[in-house]
């Protein structure tokens, strides 16, 4: 089986004034389809940067990123945007829902950007799985943090992405809501075969994953592909 995601000696260097600050210093990893991987590491070690480069939100400085066979590192912004649209779903710590749209609108927006006509079956299935059916006409401001993050997850998977990239999805949630969101991610992984890559600080959260990758100073310090 081909990896869904593969990087080779991936570098990301931020230029701050005249100083070069490397956030990724040669990351090589492989994620297989259907895996649930957690990424752990101290603050500032490059976890978010890695996720952004893997999802095509940022351009790598050096090295390659193969996402479902497409090399993102050689791509222009427009091409990366298209790959992101078709193959990646993002979930952020801060939910990032559009405040003016209700739950339904937020999820449908993702379908619209994807270019799909409204697919009622997929919509219903997704909102059912995430327990949002009774919340469709609420604005984000009327929802709890746990509910908002469930909407964000629904929005991320509505177009059946090849991989779900989650950056500390439980970082803003209390324990009960964290557990609910993590249980949901595990359910998506187990029942729908969703490939998931999740950044977390919390070892209990990491325990939901099938594999944990540890990072430090822009490098993977274990979990190097076998």
């Amino acid at each position: 089986m081909e990896p869904i995601l593969e990087t080779d000696n991936l570098w990301k260097i931020y230029h701050i004034g005249k100083v070069d600050s490397p956030a990724l210093r040669g990351v090589s990893l492989q994620i297989m389809p259907g895996e649930f991987v957690a990424i752990m590491g101290p603050s500032g070690c490059g976890k978010s940067t890695l996720l952004h480069v893997l999802g095509g939100l940022a351009q790598a400085t050096r090295g390659s990123v193969l996402l479902d066979g497409n090399d993102l590192s050689n791509m222009q912004d427009a091409e990366r945007t298209q790959i992101r649209r078709c193959k990646v779903g993002f979930v952020f710590q801060r939910f990032n829902l559009l405040p003016t749209l209700d739950v339904r609108g937020n999820i449908r927006l993702a379908q619209h950007i994807y270019g799909n006509e409204f697919d009622p079956h997929r919509f219903e299935m997704t909102t059912n799985v995430l327990g949002l059916s009774h919340r469709l006409h609420h604005r984000p401001s009327e929802l709890s943090g746990g509910e908002q993050q469930r909407v964000a997850i629904a929005r991320a998977i509505i177009n059946e992405p090849k991989i779900l990239l989650a950056d500390e999805p439980t970082g803003n949630l209390d324990t009960a809501n964290s557990d609910a969101v993590l249980a949901l991610l595990r359910q998506l992984h187990r029942d729908l075969g969703q490939t998931i890559m999740m950044i977390t600080h919390n070892p209990e959260a990491a325990a939901y994953a099938g594999r944990v990758i540890h990072m430090r100073d822009g490098l993977i310090v274990d979990g190097i592909p076998a």
Partner: peptide
């Protein structure tokens, strides 16, 4: 600004 970032993370093109 943030909402534009959200649209982009969802894969919205410049044209969108």
């Amino acid at each position: 600004t943030r909402e534009i970032g959200v649209l982009k993370s969802l894969g919205a093109s410049k044209a969108y």
